[in-house]
Design a protein around this nucleic acid. Sequence first.
DNA 1: ACCTCTTTTAGACATTGTCTAAAATTATTA
DNA 2: TAATAATTTTAGACAATGTCTAAAAGAGGT
Lengths: 135, 135
Amino acid sequence: MKKAVEILNKSNIRPTLQRINILNVILKYKNHMSAEDIYKILQRETPTISRATVYNTLNLLSKNGILAEVITPDSVRYDYVEKFHHHFYCEKCKKVYDIHDEFSVPNIKKIDGHIVKNIQYCIVGICKNCLNGGE
Amino acid sequence: MKKAVEILNKSNIRPTLQRINILNVILKYKNHMSAEDIYKILQRETPTISRATVYNTLNLLSKNGILAEVITPDSVRYDYVEKFHHHFYCEKCKKVYDIHDEFSVPNIKKIDGHIVKNIQYCIVGICKNCLNGGE
DNA sequence: ACCTCTTTTAGACATTGTCTAAAATTATTA
DNA sequence: TAATAATTTTAGACAATGTCTAAAAGAGGT
Ligand SMILES: [Mn+2]
Ligand SMILES: [Mn+2]
Ligand SMILES: [Zn+2]
Ligand SMILES: [Zn+2]
């Protein structure tokens, strides 16, 4: 597991305790978690952590390309991406699955005069597990 | 403007007053509105309309292929689509723009054992208008 | 130590969406 | 028509997700 501090330093982000903890949660659980998920997990160890810090930090890390924002119909999930891939969202259990098929995504910086900052597939359906009765 | 009643009848959906009103709002304003937007508009004329009815109806119309669900980072928007197209979401003003460039989207029914019900691009950035100061 | 800039905190607030039990409406049967 | 059954709507509580602000805390430079 890569060191959170190194990752932050490389992007010139001051490695505060809170930022390290937030990043470590993502590096440890590889679950495509929402900000709320991460907030709840951190609260167990550090009850003083602020919701605002979690949201601010996740935004900061995304803007610096450290995390990918995975857009789903109910929340944004965060992913530390080492190799590019797509995602599948199950509308039943709300889990996000990695998809390693290489669908191409247009590489555009601008369209119709709008600046594109993020383009991704949103693939929604019912997952394998839920189809089999889900546990 | 197509008749809401006709559209509902064609899909064998009982054309109740509420459903007609909801569909008419979408046909009239072509704004990629959220359920909440539609709810607020209807409340002005019919204060007894229920939030649950709006959400239930939009789900029903989507499941029947009458409306497209446009997924954005903050809400699902509804679109009556006559000609297929993509969408751009401005993270500043939260407006959704039609994109008529024909990026291809993989036509998959299943992937890794998961059933795909909906696949779309999610294109996020800053719109033309906001780049020019917004208004 | 002092000043400044950055970061975090606490908590209110806003927005979006789900759920349920009761009421109202519509369709079917007798 | 009257009784019954099925569908639809309502009201409002609740849950989940995200934003905002003013004050406090912390870090770095002089
Ligand atoms: Mn992933
Ligand atoms: Mn559209
Ligand atoms: Zn599932
Ligand atoms: Zn904009």
